[in-house]
Design a protein around this nucleic acid. Structure first.
Lengths: 259, 259
DNA sequence: TAGTGGTCTAGACCACTTC
DNA sequence: AAGTGGTCTAGACCACTAA
């Protein structure tokens, strides 16, 4: 009588997962070669590769092509609350002294946010609606990838009305000149002090491009965050779209129950 | 000279993805059989199945075993903001009249939230810390799966201090007696009116159990949400853990920039 | 060059659905 | 019974890494 029920690929994945989660196979550990595992389980390569694919999809394992498959390092989660926008983080210092998104980081800055691109582009529908301008109006687009401990953690693309930032450091593509916090300082200098933020977020699987850009392990979701910053008068001054590697972030919001 | 570069499985996936996203293959459409696609592309089943697996992982396609593979219906996204907790949604009506989480739904309630379980359990570490009690103290656990349009959208597990809800409808396992909003009414009746909420959220891939419980397509991430509800005095009265199918929700928060 | 992950062919077989 | 998705064997071959 057969008692199979669970296919070998599943069993292999379960075994390895258990060994990883128990700590028996520590982070960085190199898994046995596919052919070795195949022999060990008395199967061919296919089911082993399938099991490996599942573990990669769960983010437990990374495979380096000609090298081997390794137990993945667990990254520390960064908790994002409204505090990260606090005025004291950007208001009282010079722009250059403020290296952006890492203000609440206990780790030494190894590699700051890297301004990859500043461009004057036509606003798409959503950007136009958010910034209360017309579709096709020119907006400054600042596209950055933010690194932490040498690895990319999220990308963020900000949009500003052209007139709001023309001639400011925000249009300077050199990295480090004006980060997100710096952006707030610049807007304040322009007579548009930020006062209120709305964040919309949802999770999804990354596109292929995003997976490459953020160096995501297969199967790691991203959180897409849309941030609208407004003045006290409700005038929108920045619209930003972020794509975050989900395993490295958690968000926290506190609010009073409305009537 | 070979010009391959991209493997067949990738090409097949790209082709089908393009046809789906262009609307050429509408939602619900049945894809050609694996063997048909294999012949069409001049390959064996394996690469076709691999392509199909990728599309499933992206949530574009669902496969029903003996039946076929179908273009997936895109579910409408529900936008969750603090308004869903507003007092007027639960305060002025009777408990029974309030069918819970669907108060802002334009659709007719087909199937309400289903209280699956009410149990008196020992608090784990996180629950105890959140409710400011001791580990092992007894708490009421209410575990529900919420449906919408006949499909499960999220599960939510609430924890209350035993003394806070003993003898109230919250300890009644019958579905519909007290939903989330009803829970707030009950707590108010107990002299513990909710005033402030903290929500922590992050995305991850589901466990196998969650995927089954929420009927998730392969590769759909979940958002785990932790909600702490407190009185005006800051006393915690409810701790809830939700697991949401990510494709059906977006969250929205607005706050003022702190000093 | 040897060992690695990864994709593929060709074909058998199983589990499930539909008729 | 026929058609479906899905897993597997057995073995070839490719692309990449490390020595």
């Amino acid at each position: 009588m057969k008692q199979s029920q669970t296919p070998p690929s599943r069993r292999i994945a379960d075994d390895l997962r258990a060994e990883i989660q128990s700590g028996q196979l520590p982070p960085g550990f190199k898994l046995p070669a596919v052919r070795v595992l195949a022999e060990r389980y008395g199967v061919t390569q296919s089911p082993v590769l399938k099991a490996l694919a599942a573990l990669k999809a769960e983010g437990l394992v990374i495979a380096i092509h000609g090298s081997g498959a390794y137990v993945r390092q667990a990254n520390p989660v960064r908790r994002l609350g409204p505090d990260r926008y606090a005025r004291h983080r950007w208001q009282t210092t010079t722009v250059e002294a403020h290296p952006d998104d890492r203000v609440d980081s206990p780790t030494v800055m190894q590699q700051g946010s890297q301004t990859q691109d500043v461009a004057l582009v036509e606003a798409d529908e959503r950007t136009a609606a958010t910034l209360q301008i017309e579709v096709g109006d020119l907006v400054y687009e600042r596209d950055r990838v933010v690194f932490r401990d040498g690895a990319p953690t999220h990308s963020i693309t900000s949009y500003y009305r052209q007139a709001d930032v023309e001639g400011t450091p925000l249009t300077d593509p050199r990295p480090g000149i004006a980060g997100r916090s710096g952006g707030f300082q610049v807007l304040t200098d322009q007579g548009l002090p930020p006062h209120e933020i709305t964040e919309d977020l949802f999770a999804r699987m990354p596109t292929i491009d995003e997976a490459l850009k953020l160096d995501l392990p297969a199967g790691e979701p991203v959180v897409e965050l849309h941030r609208v910053t407004r003045t006290a008068e409700g005038r929108p001054i920045e619209y930003a779209r972020g794509v975050h590697a989900s395993s490295r972030f958690a968000w926290s919001y506190t609010f009073e129950i409305p009537d």
